[in-house]
Design a protein around this nucleic acid. Sequence first.
DNA 1: TTATTATGGACACTACAGGTCTATAATAAT
DNA 2: ATTATTATAGACCTGTAGTGTCCATAATAA
Lengths: 161, 161
Amino acid sequence: MQFSKSTDYALHALLHLGNSERCNNVGIKELASTLGVSESYLSKIMSKLRQDGLVRAVPGVNGGYELSRSTEQITFLDVIQVIEGRQKLFECSNTDSQQHRLLAEEETAGRDQERSGKCECLVQKVMEGAEQHLHQYLREHTIQSVLDEAFKHGNHETNKK
Amino acid sequence: MQFSKSTDYALHALLHLGNSERCNNVGIKELASTLGVSESYLSKIMSKLRQDGLVRAVPGVNGGYELSRSTEQITFLDVIQVIEGRQKLFECSNTDSQQHRLLAEEETAGRDQERSGKCECLVQKVMEGAEQHLHQYLREHTIQSVLDEAFKHGNHETNKK
DNA sequence: TTATTATGGACACTACAGGTCTATAATAAT
DNA sequence: ATTATTATAGACCTGTAGTGTCCATAATAA
């Protein structure tokens, strides 16, 4: 259970864009060399970020990528969900087993049965709680918050050239 | 990014053991049929749980598995770490890239340099925070807490026979 | 001694992460 | 218009981890 390298690259790429001068898009060459990763692979990741609306891209001479929202509006959760997908952290298999008949909440068979169509396992319930906590934390951390932290510690090297 | 099926099976198996009569170990046959999974695969998982000290196993006639601690002392985190391993949720690659020289905390190069040998990236820092939060939540939920919840909802079917 | 049960190793299959390469499309500069 | 540049999409490859089966062996109780 680990986040993929792609998530790593995506986060660092967005940080680089966020740290760059506004209205000055940066190409895949610069991005790749800064992160220490191949252009071909990184461009795959950037495409994904574009498809989900986190960055804009313009081809052609002096083209490149730029953030499509402000750095405060791009959370860690956004980035992670784009790269890792939005499936649940945990899903029971064998939901028709004897275990699940025991552990599923009985009241869903009661009057508010139609509220949630599926009969939820208590294990699943705990894990969904975990996921919600995790998401909340990741929503509270943005590209900007990391940049703030970096500047606070005295790394004042912006990318102006 | 998902927990494996093995973790699913392990959690449900331990719940079954926890719900069973004390001092009465249950065999792989019963366990597997209750969970709706093959005996061969489940036994692999049970072995892992045994190696890490969560259950005891006795071979031979009327053998089987039993919890080696009380249900309050087995947390979700315990189970997950046995099955998924104990690697970090996130680890930066290319820690020698230009990005990391920018994002690593400068003060670690200061007087307390030897406190933590490695120069930590701020992205990594955020993700470790996330992991800590997740772990804390998972530590607060135990086999017993799920059983309590189940009984509260009126599933009073214990496994006495 | 025997039947039963867990254990460990070998093996197979599949999916996916990680990565490269090439052809194509879009854009700006000339 | 042409050309150089840059992003995009697709095909393709590789290794590894998850999921699972099967069999031989060891340990134990009856």
